[in-house]
Simulated scan of single mutants.
Amino acid sequence: MKTVLTNKNISIRTRRRALECYIEPILMYGCEAWTISKQTQLEATEMWFLRRMLRISWTAKKTNDTVLEEAHTTRLLISKIRKRQATFFGHVMRREKLENLVTTGMLEGKRSRGKQREKLIEGLTDWLKAGKSLEAIEATKDRKKWRTMIANAVKQGT
C-alpha cells in the first residue's frame, strides 16, 4: 500500500480513504477489548501514517497540527476505537451472561499485588462522562439512551 498512499498523483482525499479502508481495520482489529492506557502511542501511530502519506520526514520541523491541516483531517482514531468499545460493551451488558461478569470484573477471587490494571468499564465511563460505572451499566439496558451517550461523546471528540 506504500506506493498508493505516497503517490502524489492521487488526491489526498482518495489516499486518506484508502488508509481508512485498508490500514485502519488491521490496526484496530480486536480494539473492543483493549484498555487504552497509552493513548499517546495510538495518536503517534495515526500521525506517523499521515506523515508517511504526505511524505513529510520525521526530521522536518512541522507540528502535528500543520500535518493535520495539510491532510485536511482531524485525529479520529481514538474516537473510532472508543465508539467501537462502547458499542461492544453495550452488547455484552445486555446479554447478561459470563461475558458480562468478566467485563465488569465482578468475579470472586484475590486481586494481584501492586497497581491494578485499568478496566474497560473505567475507561469508557471517563470517555462517556457517565460519572460512575454503575450509571454506564444501567444506561446500556436502554439502547436509545446508550446510543445517545455514545453519539454525544463522539461529537465532543474526546
Rank of each mutant, 00 (worst) to 15 (best):
L5Y: 04
N7E: 07
K8S: 11
S11P: 02
R13F: 05
T14G: 00
T14N: 12
C21W: 06
E24L: 14
E24Q: 08
Y29N: 08
A33M: 09
A33D: 11
I36F: 01
I36G: 02
T40C: 07
L42W: 14
L42E: 02
E43A: 08
A44L: 09
L50V: 05
R52L: 05
R52Y: 03
S57K: 04
S57P: 01
W58P: 00
T59H: 12
A60G: 00
K61Y: 01
K62Y: 08
L68K: 09
E70V: 01
K80R: 15
R82E: 03
T87L: 15
F88E: 14
H91Q: 15
M93P: 05
R94Q: 12
L98P: 03
E99L: 14
E99H: 15
E99I: 09
E99G: 15
T103V: 14
L107R: 12
L107K: 06
S112K: 15
Q116F: 06
R117H: 10
L120H: 00
L120Y: 06
T125K: 13
T125S: 12
T125H: 04
D126I: 08
W127E: 05
K129W: 02
K129H: 09
K132G: 02
L134K: 13
E135Q: 10
K141P: 04
R143E: 10
R143W: 07
R147C: 10
T148D: 14
T148S: 15
A153L: 07
K155L: 13
K155T: 14
Q156M: 13
Q156P: 00
G157D: 09
